[in-house]
Design a protein around this nucleic acid. Structure first.
Length: 557
DNA sequence: ACGGTATGACACC
DNA sequence: TGGTGTCCCTACCG
């Protein structure tokens, strides 16, 4: 069995943490003890950041023996009112009660007691079923429904980090792509426009091509007729076609031939997909337009078509895996739209799927192409069970925390391409959870047919959010991009844990390598700490803190 | 240790 | 409709 053999040859790797997570409030107990002397004073001493100001002035006064108690009314940093405080208490984040729930956006409760958090099944809001039978639905029932597996397979969730490359990229990771035929190759794009090629079977074999794009590499897709080359769309307004062996890149299209003429005219490319039947590379820009490029001639085909609201960003494109004429797009105009490629014209979408916020991604299901899954900034995943049925409202809405919109790569729920039932989906979680005293951001596996959380995958050493995730097309492997780092996850049996203990070694590159070299000459440094921490944790027989020593997985399998 | 900042949607006028 | 101020769990760098 290929996975078995490969698994044993896999180098086990310790992850070096980028930075120590800051303890925002170690002084939890004193919160209630502040005495308010007078209202005027409290107003004068208005705090911006409750924590930093609070301690220092009294310390200074004490030294001068002036027994003035400066009263500081604790002010909520969210709503600026007194009487409560939002922020981390240890590893648990306390919401501001004055604001609607941070998770589901409904007023009246906070994230802590949000029904969608307490019981994940409640995240499912079923759409009203309508009996609107049309001919397409008939075709679906007759031809495609039988192909959709009815028996839910036992999901295999990769939950153990086997490889990590720290600071492989110098900017945050924006997209990932597995090689279509070589099982151990992972491509990664970053905000700087660099393209990484990593053979995670041999950890040290990694390349970064830095001269392909000038800024954000938003999406990439392999050339279906030559898997040695990959197409990429960038915010520099170009499509590249890169030879992975040589790194030599060809520019297929440049939307800014005259260079920078100001932000109102600079075109950026976001969505990209390849339509292999038609031999087209499709891209979409930040002004609402779709462009086609012929893969043989590398020439632009036809004119750009306005497919989303004029001036709005089209962030995602996806061609239906079975019906080459169907295209799905999504963007900042709060819509996902289904198009017939044969009649592409502004305003002529087959369907317009409304969302309440920006739609980060929209994908047809990978095998039958008959379902649609979208990720929206309103903290909901939406599922349409059949594109041939009634599309007026989604079949299900699943509340899930992924709404951060700045500084982070947008979250995108990704199908498991191996799941015959087309129901397993992976997506990183923005909101943190307290895992044995550490605030971690898990990667969630969700059954979109029920809305159930199948698993939440964490690693004590991965303290950063993982917005970019992709499941391997053939193996039980998950790739994650978290900040600037890449991770490969595999399922691991307990018998392998013991083996891993002896094999530990640190794999770092880039800046982290320098850091490691510099400090190891002297005293202890972060990575040493981490290593010793891990060692000590691993030496525990596991009972006391079952989740602390290993990557953990919660939920049903 | 702390503070600056890159950066994007959207509400509001 | 466009300019502007605001923003709740970032991550990192100097």
């Amino acid at each position: 069995m290929p996975p078995q053999t490969r698994r044993t040859s896999f180098p086990a790797v310790v992850i070096e943490r980028d930075t120590d997570s800051e303890e925002s409030s170690s002084d939890e107990d004193e919160v209630e003890d502040v005495v308010v002397e007078s209202e005027e004073e409290a107003e004068v001493e208005e705090i911006q950041n409750g924590e930093s100001v609070e301690e220092e002035p009294p310390a200074v006064k004490k030294r001068e023996k002036v027994p003035i108690t400066i009263s500081l009314k604790k002010v909520c940093k969210v709503c600026k009112r007194t009487g409560h405080e939002a922020g981390f208490k240890g590893a648990t984040y306390i919401d501001c009660p004055m604001k609607p729930c941070f998770l589901c956006k409904m007023p009246g409760h906070t994230t802590m007691n949000c029904p969608h958090r307490v019981a994940t099944e409640h995240g499912v809001i079923p759409a009203p079923h309508r009996n609107a039978h049309n001919s397409l639905e008939y075709v679906f029932e007759r031809q495609l429904r039988p192909k959709v597996s009815k028996i839910k397979p036992a999901f295999v969730v990769p939950d153990q980090v086997h490889c990590a490359v720290i600071r492989y990229h110098s900017r945050r990771v924006t997209c990932l792509e597995f090689h279509p035929t070589n099982n151990n190759i992972l491509l990664s794009g970053d905000k700087k426009g660099q393209l990484g090629v990593w053979d995670f079977g041999k950890v040290h074999e990694k390349i970064v091509y830095g001269n392909i794009h000038g800024c954000i590499l938003n999406h990439m897709k392999f050339n279906p007729t030559n898997d040695g080359t990959v197409y990429a769309a960038s915010s520099d307004g170009t499509i590249s076609c890169t030879d992975l062996e040589t790194g030599i890149s060809l520019s297929l299209m440049n939307l800014n031939p005259n260079g920078w003429q100001g932000p109102s005219s600079w075109r950026m490319l976001y969505g990209l997909d390849v339509n292999s039947e038609k031999g087209l590379v499709l891209v979409a820009d930040n002004f609402g337009f779709l462009y086609s490029v012929d893969m043989r001639s590398n020439n632009k085909v036809g004119e750009a078509t306005l497919i989303h609201k004029k001036g709005s960003k089209v962030v995602g494109l996806h061609c239906n895996p079975l019906q080459p004429d169907l295209l799905l797009s999504c963007g900042n105009d709060h819509f996902a739209r289904i198009w017939d490629m044969r009649q592409l014209k502004a305003g002529s979408a087959l369907y317009n799927l409304a969302h309440r916020r920006v739609v980060n991604s929209a994908y047809f299901s990978p095998q039958t192409g008959s379902k649609i899954l979208t990720t929206s900034q309103d903290n909901r995943l939406r599922v349409w069970d059949s594109i041939f049925g009634n599309l007026d409202s989604p079949s299900r809405e699943i509340v899930h925390s992924h709404d951060f919109n700045r500084h982070l790569t947008p979250f995108r729920a990704e199908w498991d391409p191996k799941d015959p039932s087309e129901s397993l989906v992976v997506i990183g979680r923005y909101i943190s959870e307290n895992y044995n005293g550490a605030a971690l951001h898990p990667i969630d596996f969700i059954d979109i047919s029920t809305g159930q959380l199948i698993a939440e995958v964490t690693e004590p050493n991965i303290t950063t959010i993982s917005p970019v995730n992709k499941l391997h097309p053939r193996d039980d492997v998950l790739a994650s991009g978290s900040s600037r780092s890449l991770f490969i996850w595999r399922p691991k049996e307990d018998s392998e844990i013991a083996q891993q203990k002896d094999e530990k070694k640190i794999i770092v590159c880039g800046k982290a390598e320098k850091k490691l070299g510099k400090k190891s000459a002297g005293e202890s440094d972060d990575s040493d700490d981490d290593l010793s921490k891990l060692k000590s944790k691993n030496s525990k027989p596991g009972k006391a803190g079952p989740r602390s020593s290993r990557s953990s997985i919660k939920g049903k399998r």
